[in-house]
């Protein structure tokens, strides 16, 4: 009887701990939790070249990684205080909802259903992507519309598969899909001529082309058949934290617009006369107060991680693994015809 009673007591205590802990979690904002924890938890995936992947030293690198490092720099002044949680696709939403992860930054496309039904708030798009096609050059095809009746290699269960079906139906192309479960197998199949075309997000196509036995044999067709706005998301209804993440990104874009780079940021901070630059870098004004961050938060972001242009060049630019030109794409600054438009620092 004694044992039974103590077991009962233990389980009652556990239930109590559980409820009180979850109540505590409801009350505090993520920003406070992050500050108490001393690090930002960033939800990523296993590997996505250019966006998040491991190098051989075991360090994470990529565009999503730099976004998270930027947030850590804004909060702590140290881009290293970030903890990456590589999770499966199915777990990414629950990891954010349960509060285990603070930012979802895993190259996720902003869609309506994800925005409304997964308990997430999408904040900003850091990379505009879209689905494209790659074919063998000697096929002589210059447009997707010429691919009538072609077989297309595609990953099963992805939005690419659905987009492909939509596109084929609207344009009466009668495309035959060859589905694969694993991107490595799909690429090998394509390079061994098991299908006429390969479809994927265009950023990925560039990387896959570079892995071909002879990249010059393949071309990426000009059409983009879908909208893939890769965006980061945070837990729903936590504006304080959402502001921090949102404005970290804005600071990166604004820095590029006003010519602040990680190299000249110290100089700009000391000598710049421009009131906007001075406000961004926290030399004057009190913009940081509303965010609940240190005065030099944006300076730290730029100093530690760089401006948007630098991040782009480093991870997906022409000299990187993906080799994507920025000029003329949606990812250029607004004054160059792109969609990267920093909101006003005032």
């Amino acid at each position: 009887m004694n044992k039974f009673a103590s077991a009962l007591a233990v389980s009652a205590a556990m239930i109590f701990v559980q409820t009180s802990a979850s109540q505590a979690e409801e009350g505090t904002s993520t920003l406070q939790t992050v500050k108490d924890r001393g690090s930002v938890s960033c939800v990523i995936g296993n590997s996505f070249p250019g966006f998040y992947s491991l190098n051989k030293e075991g360090e994470w690198q990529g565009m999503d990684i730099d976004m998270c490092r930027g947030v850590a720099a804004a909060v702590f002044g140290d881009a290293g205080k970030v903890n990456f949680l590589p999770v499966q696709w199915a777990q990414s939403f629950t990891t954010i909802k349960s509060g285990k992860g603070d930012i979802l930054s895993k190259g996720m496309t902003w869609t309506l259903s994800r925005d409304v039904s997964q308990g997430l708030d999408f904040l900003d798009t850091y990379f505009y992507d879209g689905q494209g096609f790659m074919v063998r050059k000697d096929l002589g095809v210059t447009s997707v519309k010429e691919l009538k009746g072609a077989t297309v290699c595609v990953l099963t269960g992805t939005s690419s598969e659905l987009n492909l079906a939509d596109y084929s139906r609207t344009h009466g192309l009668d495309l035959k899909t060859v589905v694969f479960d694993d991107s490595a197998v799909r690429n090998t199949a394509f390079f061994n001529d098991n299908c006429d075309a390969l479809t994927n997000d265009k950023s990925g196509l560039a990387a896959q082309r570079s892995a071909a036995p002879n990249p010059a044999d393949y071309v990426v067709l000009p059409e983009t058949i879908s909208k893939e706005a890769l965006s980061f998301a945070v837990k729903q209804n936590d504006s304080e934290w959402a502001n921090v993440v949102k404005w970290t990104f804005q600071a990166m874009v604004a820095a590029e617009e006003y010519g602040i780079t990680s190299e000249n940021v110290d100089d700009m901070r000391a000598n710049s006369e421009s009131p906007i630059v001075r406000r961004i870098l926290g030399v004057e004004g009190d913009l940081h107060v509303g965010l609940g961050l240190p005065q030099d938060w944006a300076y730290q972001v730029i100093k530690n991680v760089g401006n948007y242009g630098e991040i782009y060049e480093r991870n997906v630019g022409p000299n990187s693994i993906l080799g994507l030109d920025r000029e003329g794409t949606l990812n250029a600054l607004w004054q160059d015809g792109g969609l990267m438009y920093a909101k006003s620092f005032r």
């Binding site: 296993n46 590997s47 996505f48 070249p49 992947s53 491991l54 190098n55 051989k56 590589p86 999770v87 499966q88 490595a184 690429n187 090998t188 990387a207 896959q208 570079s210 892995a211 071909a212 990187s320 693994i321």
Partner: peptide, 25 residues
Amino acid sequence: SIIGLFDIMLMARNISNDKNWIGLH
């Protein structure tokens, strides 16, 4: 490796996503 522990299989898969060794499966 499927649930995201970096065991030998997942490390092997990461080689093929490394900048220098892309596509090495």
